[in-house]
């Protein structure tokens, strides 16, 4: 089955916030879209791994979050935007495993 067909339905921003709070152990119970992940929410490298792995799993299709998308993420809103980007970018057939 093509990996694209394994991708999941894209969450809305509100759904993503609820997912963020429920999925990430380090998330406080209340977050704002403008919360800075590092400075406001205390994300460290291990927290960043949780977030990237979580986003990849939420997108489905065993998609890899590219490094340049990871580096665009500073706030929760950024995380949502890069999640959406990842969910919509086509797969690279030449690089496919």
């Amino acid at each position: 089955m093509p990996a694209d067909s394994n991708r999941r339905e894209v969450m809305s921003l509100d759904e993503f916030k609820r997912w963020f709070i429920a999925e990430l152990d380090w998330s406080p119970e209340e977050v704002s879209e403008d919360s800075d992940l590092i400075f406001d929410l205390g994300m460290d490298s291990v927290g960043a791994v949780d977030l990237m792995v979580g986003i990849e799993e939420a997108v489905g299709g065993d998609v890899i979050m590219p490094i340049e998308l990871m580096l665009e993420i500073n706030t929760l809103r950024d995380a949502y935007l890069q999640y959406c980007a990842l969910a919509h970018l086509p797969l690279d057939d030449e690089a496919r495993r």
Binding site: E57, V63, I64, L89, P90, L91, D92, A95, R96, R97
Partner: peptide, 15 residues
């Protein structure tokens, strides 16, 4: 666990 994903291959997106 989920972190094992860090060492596994996956599907690259077109950039």
């Amino acid at each position: 666990g989920p972190v094992g994903r860090l060492l596994t291959p996956g599907n690259h997106v077109l950039r």
